[in-house]
Every structure is written in C-alpha cells, then in structure tokens.
C-alpha cells in the first residue's frame, strides 16, 4: 500500500484546505495517510473550527472584489469580514467546508497526530481537540514518514 505523510503547520482558512484535500483524496486512492499537526496547524484539530480565519493583511495575492489599501485592511473587524466573504464564496462554488473535509478524512481512516510539544507550549487541553487523534513528537512522525511515497510540508 502506498503511503503519504503531511506536516500541517498553518492555521488559517486558506492553508487549512491543502492538507485536508490531499489527505482525503489520497485515502480515496488507496493510500495510507498520516497528518502531523504542529504549531498553528493544531488549530485544525480543534472541535470548534470557527477561529480558523483568513486575513487580507500581508496577503497581496488574495483576490478582492475592490482594491483595498493596507490601511483599510488593518481596521477592526476586517478579518471577520474577509473570512465571511471567503466562506460564502467557497460555499457558492461547491467547495466542501473544513469540517466536512476533516470528517471525510477520519471516515477514510486518515490518521491525525497532534504535536504534543505544541499542545503543551500553547497550554491547550486535550479536550479542546476532536476525538480519535493521537499525540506524538518528531520521532513519531519520522517513523511513518521515513517509509512514505509522498511527504509534504504545508
């Protein structure tokens, strides 16, 4: 059986999609998949994903309906507005929500591993995270990653 390992290090809405899309698709193609969530990537394992947002700030590649000066992007609430707009767009275009993709990963036996060091670093509680995940460190990741066909850092 082919194997794929992904390290997910980002916790923003845009960067949350690639690990979940690739993991669920690889699983559908018959791969054994493991995703290691570390640093901000841990946000993607929280029960509540509503804190996963997108910001136009320092993100000049983000397509905007109107050109928006950086001074405006800094205003309070802009992040919430940008996130609402992006989620609305994703929904209209038929792109799955993060919750849906994550559930599809788990259903397809994708294994999620949370970085224990980062959990401790940010004082997270295991109860913050979804069930059916494992906790481990770099050596745990290497044990699986060392024998994979595809290994990605996101």
């Amino acid at each position: 059986m082919k194997k794929m390992a992904i390290i997910a290090t980002k916790g923003t809405l845009d960067m949350a999609y690639p690990p979940f899309i690739l993991a669920s698709t690889a699983a559908a193609l018959g791969y054994e998949v493991q995703v290691f969530f570390t640093f901000y990537g841990l946000q993607l394992l929280r029960k509540d994903l509503s804190d996963v947002k997108i910001s136009p700030l320092a993100n000049p590649a983000m397509p905007m309906p109107l050109p928006m000066p950086v001074m405006v992007q800094m205003l309070p609430g802009m992040e919430t507005i940008a996130t609402m707009m992006m989620k609305d767009k994703l929904k209209k275009k038929g792109v799955a929500s993060l919750e849906e993709l994550r559930a599809l990963c788990l259903e397809a036996d994708v294994k999620f591993v949370a970085c224990q060091m980062t959990v401790d670093l940010f004082d997270f509680e295991r109860s913050d995270f979804i069930d059916n995940i494992e906790y481990g460190g770099a050596a745990t990741f290497m044990e699986f990653a060392g024998d994979t066909d595809i290994c990605l850092f996101v």
Binding site: I21, S24, T25, A28, K93, G94, V95, A96, L104, A108
Partner: peptide, 29 residues
C-alpha cells in the same frame, strides 16, 4: 455543483457498496 475533491470522494464512497463489475454513472459540473 460540487468542487474538487468531493466528486472523487463521493465516487469512491459510491463504489464501496457496489459489486465487482457493476457500473456507476457519475454526473458533475
């Protein structure tokens, strides 16, 4: 109306409870 990778994931799921040799028709946009 579904975007990548949903058509593939749903195809995989639909095939799962079918017998070998059976044919699945998939329509997507």
């Amino acid at each position: 109306g579904l975007g990548c990778p949903l058509p593939i994931l749903k195809t995989k799921k639909s095939l799962a409870d079918m017998a070998s040799g059976q044919v699945l028709k998939i329509i997507c946009t």
